[in-house]
């Protein structure tokens, strides 16, 4: 039988465990995330309904996209998110060095996304694809570039988190900065998990 004395003997490493509902990270980042989700949601709806009125054009031009590069980028973002989770878990164990190492993994996989995406853009520009070449290309370029800018900001945040982890700034009871940055990065991943099937696959 559990008793209320359990919490009295908790070690510092256990002090952060949640007794009730708790939002991970700063409240302000969650309002920012909601604003971002709303903006992407409007973009997705605009794409879906424009496609509904131009099915043949969208299907033909979507077929020319590099779906393998898109899938690889999904793997890279999912892996980066997983590494961020492991970094947070390491900080909970007061393992700052491991936390920093997991964040290096997340930064490298995040950069991998950037490299793959730049390769995709280079190929598109070689084929004279631009914002004005067709409604599909307008959406493809603007949606993916809007997301691309979020990945870059996410990488800047991850580098700041890595710097904090190296200095041992995150520990149980002092996780706010790490959890706040992690929430932003996961949002970038979440948006891609809708963007990729919507723009690259569904036809």
């Amino acid at each position: 039988m559990e008793t209320s004395t359990t919490t009295l003997s908790a070690s510092p490493a256990q002090a952060h465990v949640h007794a009730g509902p708790r939002l991970a990270g700063d409240l302000a980042i969650w309002f920012f995330i909601l604003a971002e989700l709303l903006a992407f949601g409007v973009f997705f709806a605009a794409y879906a309904f424009t496609r509904a009125n131009n099915i043949e054009l969208f299907n033909a031009e979507q077929a020319a996209l590099n779906r393998n590069a898109g899938a690889l980028n999904t793997v890279l973002l999912l892996t980066a998110s997983y590494f961020v989770v492991r970094a947070v878990q390491a900080a909970e164990r007061e393992a700052s060095r491991q936390c920093a190492n997991w964040l290096v993994g997340a930064i490298l996989t995040g950069f991998g996304f950037i490299v793959v995406k730049l390769g995709e853009y280079a190929a598109a520009f070689e084929h004279n694809i631009s914002l004005s070449s067709s409604p599909f290309h307008m959406f493809y370029l603007s949606l993916t570039f809007f997301h691309f800018m979020h990945v870059i900001l996410g990488l800047v945040i991850l580098i700041a988190m890595w710097n904090g982890a190296r200095q041992g700034r995150y520990r149980p009871g002092d996780m706010n900065g790490l959890e706040t940055g992690a929430a932003y990065w996961h949002m970038v991943d979440l948006v891609w998990l809708i963007l990729f099937p919507l723009v690259y696959v569904i036809h």
Partner: peptide, 28 residues
Amino acid sequence: LDFMALRHAPLLWRAITMGWMIVVWAVI
């Protein structure tokens, strides 16, 4: 729910984020 840890967040935040995804997929 798991990576953003909203499974253990107050219900309102879980409802807003999951609700966003439900609405987006419904519109699609």
